[in-house]
Design a protein around this nucleic acid. Sequence first.
RNA 1: GCGGGUGUGGUUCAAUGGUAGAACGUGGGCUUCCCAAGCCUGAGACGAGGGUUCGAUUCCCUUCACCCGCGCCA
Length: 530
Amino acid sequence: MAESKQPDRMEKVVSLCKRRGFVFPSSEIYGGINGFWDYGPLGAELKRNVKELWWSEMTRLRDDVAGLEATIIMHPQIWKASGHVDTFSDPMIDCKTCKGRFRADQTGEIPCPQRPSKMVTECAGEKTQPRPFNLMFKTHCGPVESEDNVCYLRPETAQAIFAQFKNVLETSRQKVPFGIAQVGKAFRNEVTPRNFTFRSREFEQMELEYFIKPDEAVEAISGSVAEATGEGHPGEPQPSWGWQLWHKYWVEERLRFYEGIGLPRTSLEEYWQKPEELAHYARATVDILFKFPFGTQELEGIAARSDFDLSQHERHAGKPMGVFDDDLRAAWTRLPKETQDALWKRYHDARHKYLIKSGVDAESAAATARNDADNLAKGKYIPHVIEPSAGVDRLILALITHAFSEVTETDDKGKSETRVILRFHPRVAPIKVAVLPLLKNKPELVAKARGVFELLRGQVNTYYDDSGSIGRRYARQDEAGTPFCVTVDFETLGEKPELLDTVTIRHRDDARQERLPITGLAAWLLERVR
RNA sequence: GCGGGUGUGGUUCAAUGGUAGAACGUGGGCUUCCCAAGCCUGAGACGAGGGUUCGAUUCCCUUCACCCGCGCCA
């Protein structure tokens, strides 16, 4: 992957974030703590805007998605079922000679990096003792620390959605296909936090689990599973969509979202994971990448996860995770026998393969798979899932680096000066409008400006500033990414009667100015920041 | 975790074995002030902990953080 790295640009962004109050090192007065970052006043607003836009588009503006806010600490069995306990606990061995790090249980199968003819166990390099390499943050529930009450801080928000699937289904009056959305903190004890906030140990995710019918059910109901035709957004969801079209749909929806908050497609890349890169349960995964100054890196992954997660929880919790589908039941009885048999067999084989892979013994796997396929014929199945999973903090960093621009201007005296402008999309900008009296020592101007400020602050996030020259205040707002400034001058007070109660609106990106009546200000702004 | 680099006001940088300067920013003031104008004035720093030394921001050790590379990244 050819990448143009711009370390200078990244340094400037980091220092701007500190200087203007977007991002601070966590616990800085104690020397900081690796992998943890705080959001300052502007960063907090920016992040809030992004999360609210996501939430609103995902849940409130859709009929088919319900929200959830689950706890960070959950029953430890959840992480057993999800696979995190096992995969995060691999004992690792370091080779002091070649500096390699290997899973302790695989040293007999991995070639030594320095002498590929020999396996790691056979080479002469000095090895460390195996050490547990756990990327989940562990804690204890209750006052006594013992093996019995170990709990984990969630390494992803998704599992809570699966765990609460049934409750949400029953209380939200949704039917498959439908989704459950959640925004929240997650924690991973990363080996190496890197690249500013990009890889942090405490971070926030915006995740949707979108539950769909298995393709066999879609085919039974619609006669066939629709094929994806052509590039781009496949349009409004159709009953005939199988997992592939739903997957494509969500990839395009997510790209639209990024465009809508100011990340054009040219700043993004799609990466379709190759079959050998896929997690064992995934049928397809698309990463949406952003061209960061330190390289092109993942913002969001959209995975087609089959029915793996709900199946795991059904097995581990011993609680049924299947749903009953009236349409399927009705459709099934009308199918010709050979179609029924073919669908039964396909569903059976998929279930059987999953069960065997999960370590279920051959006899129960055979029985369970038969039972699952019989259930399909009665209208019951475990939904499959499409998972668009986005990192909030990565997105914030992408928005800041993308918005960052420098403008060098030379004045009459030949003195040149470089100013920073953060060209945020108005929808995400932390401050939407600044209200500025032209002068601060004229009580009438200040009073009028305060009035305008009070008028606007309940509508959009508004900032009042009367310190320094007007040009300095414009520059200050440019650096904060404020898209609009409202200036109250003597004409507002009626120096020219025809301009009484009008103000100057100044645009961030081109310094353009226009005159608007105060009465229309709020509506004018709302139109542009929503 | 390994190797290399860097830590001085908010930011960007100076200087120094005798406890630190600047620019910008920031607080207050003056100015009919529309793109970081000017003037007056204030606050503000040697990442942390040890050691050597009469004395350490400076030398040494440890530690923490950040950056680059490697490894790891369900």
